[in-house]
Amino acid sequence: MKDDWTLIIKPHQKLWSVDLGEIWRYRDLIQLFVKRDVVVQYKQTILGPLWYVIQPILTVIMNMVVFGGIAKMSTDGIPQALFYMAGNVCWLYFANCLNQTSNTFIANQNMFGKVYFPRLVLPISTVLSNLLRFGVQLGLFIAIYLYYYFNGSNIHLGNMFSEPSFLTPVLVLVLVLVLVVMLAGLGLGFGILVSSMTTKYRDLRILFTFIVQLWMYATPIVYPISMVSEGTLRTLMLANPITSIIEAFKYITLGQGYFSWGALGYSFLFMILLLVFGVVIFNKVQRSFMDTV
């Protein structure tokens, strides 16, 4: 009798009080949010989902003109279109996850102010809905890849450490999947952390939008990390958890890039810690953010 309350609301909770089961119960809601994001994005546009493809194409053309053409930066012998596409597809996914989840509280305050559901549902569905866009863009990448492959360009699946290559297509698939999960996890982790920290004091939000722009240049998207010689700068660049993911992706798919289990392990650990920390902070903030937002 004393203990059969289904819900107890009190001012303070334990640090880790995330009810993952509850989020699972709301999986239908996640699905609907994903659908909403996808459907709504290009409503009343003529080209519709074609924009998924047009955006990266324009970005890559711009990259080819500025970095490949004017600055004449190396692409490690990979055709420029393919090289820039590989970096941009990954980066766009990360940056979209990050930008959209970092807005969770402020953008949804009307809804959050009226009804309860586990707040984590929203950033999670954002990450998932971006996955669709990523998938389409990855398809574009594969199309370009095949074009160059059959036109005899110097590209091949990366050979891990030594011949004979044990990087079978299945392993490539698995590795790419892991990399995508890591991008998603990092985007989500940073996003919810920023969204938690910007509800009360919005200063960070202003700072953050251009940090993301700068961050792209600190990540080897438009240049290969091989251009950066050993030293402090390179160490700093590898401290950026996105670097090893992007480089690994290029290595696996294009055969050129920096691949290191250690660096990937670092990024993975970084992601786990970031997610735990982010979820704890997010959870703390979501309890009272309506009063301060």
């Binding site: 059969d4 309350w5 289904t6 819900l7 107890i8 609301i9 009190k10 001012p11 959050f112 102010g113 009226k114 009804v115 309860y116 309890r287 009272s288 309506m290 009063d291």
Partner: peptide, 17 residues
Amino acid sequence: KLLSRVTMPTTGTIKVR
């Protein structure tokens, strides 16, 4: 709002069945 868990109480407890 407290009961709907839109925001949390400053003091006290609400128990719900």
